[in-house]
Amino acid sequence: MLTLYGMPDSGNCYKPRLLLAKLGRPFRHVAVNSITGETRTATYLARNPNGKVPLLEFEDGRFLAESNAMLLHLAEGTRFLPADSHERALVYQWLFFEQYSHEPFIAVRRAILKYPERASQATPDRMQQLFEGGTKALEVMESQLAKTPFIAGDALSVADIALFAYTQDAGFAGYPMDRFPHVEAWLERVRADEGHVSLEWLP
């Protein structure tokens, strides 16, 4: 059985859990808290020298880090990854967008507001920078979702799963979601897709 190491309330850790739930693939979840230092123990670093979660362990003992790499691997041969090369490239495009233009702002602002340990980072300049970067990412998504029902086209893909993880909490992070009606409608379409589970779900 697959083993997934992760923080239950982390959006990045939620991504592979959500896809595995949709695929109906059984897995074991092992809670690992990066905030309290559990990812920096010698045992964990032997599994992932980068000292981060999530981490996926396969039945044969091999490991795979990075949430979006897990999505691509697990989605092979399923409806969540297009067979057409250009359509696949569009999915990759949005996965890179999520990691470089979305997650560094929306996820970080969410974390500063969610975890007391990070409260010292909530300086006015830092929070404004995160707000502006996240707003730009949401504007890009809004423009795309005005044209297509899902982020990479007509069908839900791992690009939607990746972007859903933290966009669903953008309101909590202080972004005015009423300015992004197409994003809000897309969030509901993702939730309505078969096999959806919430961030709180664990196997």
Rank of each mutant, 00 (worst) to 15 (best):
H73V: 05
A65M: 06
A65Y: 03
L71C: 04
E142W: 01
K52I: 12
R109S: 07
E59S: 11
R25H: 14
V30K: 10
S34A: 13
L74N: 11
Y5D: 12
P8T: 13
I106Y: 01
F63S: 09
Q129E: 14
D60T: 09
E66W: 00
A107M: 01
F105G: 03
Y92G: 08
A21E: 04
R17F: 00
G24E: 06
M141V: 03
G24M: 04
A21L: 02
W94E: 01
Y14G: 03
L130V: 07
A107S: 09
L72M: 15
L4H: 07
L113F: 08
R110P: 11
L18H: 05
L45F: 06
L4C: 01
Q121R: 13
S101G: 12
A31P: 14
D9N: 15
F96L: 12
E76D: 14
K22T: 01
D84C: 10
L2H: 10
R110H: 02
T36W: 07
D9A: 14
L138C: 07
V53E: 00
E142Y: 08
G37S: 03
A111R: 08
T36S: 10
G11V: 00
A119Y: 10
F63I: 05
V53I: 15
D9L: 13
F96G: 07
V108P: 05
F97K: 00
H29F: 15
P26Y: 06
E117F: 13
L95E: 01
D84N: 12
E139P: 05
P82L: 02
T123Q: 09
N68H: 13
F63Y: 12
T135V: 06
A137Q: 07
E66N: 03
A21F: 00
Q93F: 13
S101E: 12
D84K: 10
D125A: 11
L90M: 12
L23R: 05
P82E: 10
F80L: 07
A111Y: 00
R110A: 00
Q99F: 11
R17S: 05
L113R: 15
V91R: 10
L23N: 09
D125K: 06
T3M: 12
G6S: 08
A65S: 11
T41E: 10
H29G: 14
G11A: 08
R118I: 09
R79E: 15
L90Q: 14
L138S: 05
E59T: 02
G133C: 02
I35Q: 07
T78N: 05
D9K: 01
G6A: 02
E59H: 08
L130S: 03
I35D: 03
M7D: 14
K15M: 04
M7F: 13
M7T: 07
E66R: 01
A21S: 13
A122D: 10
E87P: 04
V108K: 09
I35T: 11
E139S: 14
R79L: 12
I106C: 07
L55I: 06
A65D: 09
